[in-house]
Design a binder for these strands. Sequence first.
DNA 1: GGAGCGATGTCCT
DNA 2: GGACATCGCTCCG
Length: 217
Amino acid sequence: MSAHRTAGAAQQTRPTAPLKILPRSFYLDAPEQVARRLLGKLLVRKMNSATLVGRIVEVEAYIGEQDAAAHAFSGRTARNGVLFGPPGHAYVYFIYGMYYCLNVSCEPEGRAGGVLIRALEPIAGLEEMTRLRGLPITAKPEMLTSGPGRLCQAFGILRGDHNGVDLTNPSSDLQIIDDGFVPLNIAVTPRIGIRKAAELPLRFLIEGNPFVSGRPV
DNA sequence: GGAGCGATGTCCT
DNA sequence: GGACATCGCTCCG
């Protein structure tokens, strides 16, 4: 068993930076740009029992109607409507009969585009995440949120509750926050788990972070 | 450690 | 009816 690198060891947080919700304008851009900029930001889930926090360490960009792998490829439907709506909203869909995946809508209203959140580094509320995942209390933190289906389960994200939620609204129970953290190096690879347009380099991750899905890069 | 595969609901053709 | 932006288990080397 090789030693894991300490979480966040290769990056720096500016301790004096204030916490601020990412504004709508942050998402008003091409998915590739938004995806890159989301790395290092905090996903915050407010529950009655606890507040769960995870740092975004892996994302994928889905371009929209020109991207054969994107849900928006075949045009607007009841399912993918959020992707065509205003930026900064959660697009949550159900996949393989068992799991949910979380995306963030971007680009101006009327244009589809999204960023899939693929992995988080758990920061706060790890006990609650472990419980929601149905894992023993001794489970390693790498098992909590490393993968799009896993992180939704760990954060209690459901389509019925969170599809269409405005991530920029302070009263939402799901938000994305900037705490001043700046990733040192960003790696780019092809997207994972897709058949169509699988060669495009649209997966972005924080290099060396042990909480990315699959093996750390 | 890695390939193979089953579970399971929803959407679109 | 088939595909699916997944996960975790089994089996094999």
